[in-house]
């Protein structure tokens, strides 16, 4: 993503001070603080309206949802919309697929990017600067400058999906787990972020471990990586979130229902069943609630990640 490059500065900057600027509180400011709370609460409520409306709508009966004018609250809370939506469209399968892919992306990204980031940060070798510049350049590449050939590569993967050794004749990786998991599994941004974190560790640790007879990989895996756990958490969460919410790539490479991810499944469901709003909202709730929960429980890492990352 081209936006990622712009985040270099933020990532390189020292971690922001934990405590915000303090204001001295005088009794006269009490009214001001109340106004502040009111303003912020209004803002927060306005931002949350779509989520609340989604959840309320997902629990409305058929009659309630098509009532005019719309009622704020359902006359009866129809929890059965959820099992019915799951029976109506294979949201369960979509959900499982998304989860599987997101976990796959997260594991692969953390594993490969920590190694690469460590090598770029702590191991001197010829051509290190060039490789690092290459990673930076790849971070700047926008999705649309690579997606068409990526699709062609996936389609013409030799020996897969009926292809011959030159990748002709079949569908390659299209409509397969390979295409869903492998191409998007590693982000240059993760490499970059890990490099920054590894750079900040003291050299003495590494040298002490070397004197103790630990190999280079041992130093990486057992000494240095445990020290960058916050970075691992941030990258893992951002990767999971990005993968769960990804739409375009899964849309391109899958046509079969069994392989659809939740976002593509939702869009397809909407286009097929334009009026089943309650089921659609139930599906949307299922697609968003896991991310909301994950975010609420791990806010600290998300905020840290996004503040250092800028966008995406």
């Amino acid at each position: 993503m081209s936006t990622e490059i712009l985040t270099v500065q933020a990532a390189a900057a020292p971690p922001p001070q934990a405590t915000p600027r303090r204001r001295r509180r005088t009794p006269g400011q009490l009214a001001g603080r109340t106004a502040l709370h009111l303003l912020l609460a209004t803002g927060a409520v306005v931002m949350a309206v779509p989520f609340v409306w989604m959840m309320i709508s997902s629990l409305k009966s058929h009659a309630d949802i098509s009532a005019y004018p719309p009622r704020l609250l359902p006359t009866e809370w129809v929890w059965s919309n959820y099992p019915e939506a799951l029976a109506f469209a294979p949201f369960g399968t979509y959900f499982r697929n998304s989860f599987f892919i997101a976990v796959g992306h997260t594991v692969i990204n953390v594993a490969l990017a920590t190694m690469a980031g460590y090598a770029l940060a702590r191991l001197p070798f010829k051509g290190r600067t060039v490789v690092f510049m290459g990673v930076l350049a790849m971070m700047m590449i926008p999705t649309y400058t690579k997606i068409v050939p990526q699709y062609l590569i996936a389609k013409s993967m030799p020996f897969f999906g009926g292809n011959d050794y030159l990748g002709r004749g079949g569908y390659g990786w299209l409509d397969s787990w390979w295409a869903l998991i492998i191409p998007g599994a590693l982000t240059p941004f993760a490499i970059f972020l890990f490099r920054q974190f590894y750079l900040s560790l003291p050299r003495e640790l590494e040298e002490a471990a070397r004197i103790d007879g630990l190999g280079e990989f041992g130093i990486f895996a057992r000494i240095m990586t445990p020290l960058v756990k916050p970075a691992v958490a941030t990258v893992a969460l951002l990767t999971f979130e990005h993968s769960w919410n990804n739409f375009l790539w899964p849309l391109l490479v899958t046509t079969r229902d069994e392989l659809r991810v939740i976002q593509v499944g939702l869009a397809a469901f909407q286009q097929a069943e334009r009026t089943e709003w309650a089921y659609l909202m139930a599906g949307s709730t299922l697609a968003t609630v896991p991310m909301i929960m994950l975010f609420l429980f791990t806010q600290r890492y998300f905020v840290q990640g996004f503040a250092t990352v800028g966008i995406k």
């Binding site: 779509p50 989520f51 989604m54 979130e241 769960w244 919410n245 739409f247 939740i262 976002q263 593509v264 939702l266 869009a267 599906g283 949307s284 697609a287 968003t288 991310m291 909301i292 994950l294 975010f295 998300f302 996004f306």
Partner: peptide, 8 residues
């Protein structure tokens, strides 16, 4: 920002 654009 954290929830899926499609769903939302």
């Amino acid at each position: 920002h954290v929830t899926a654009t499609v769903a939302i």
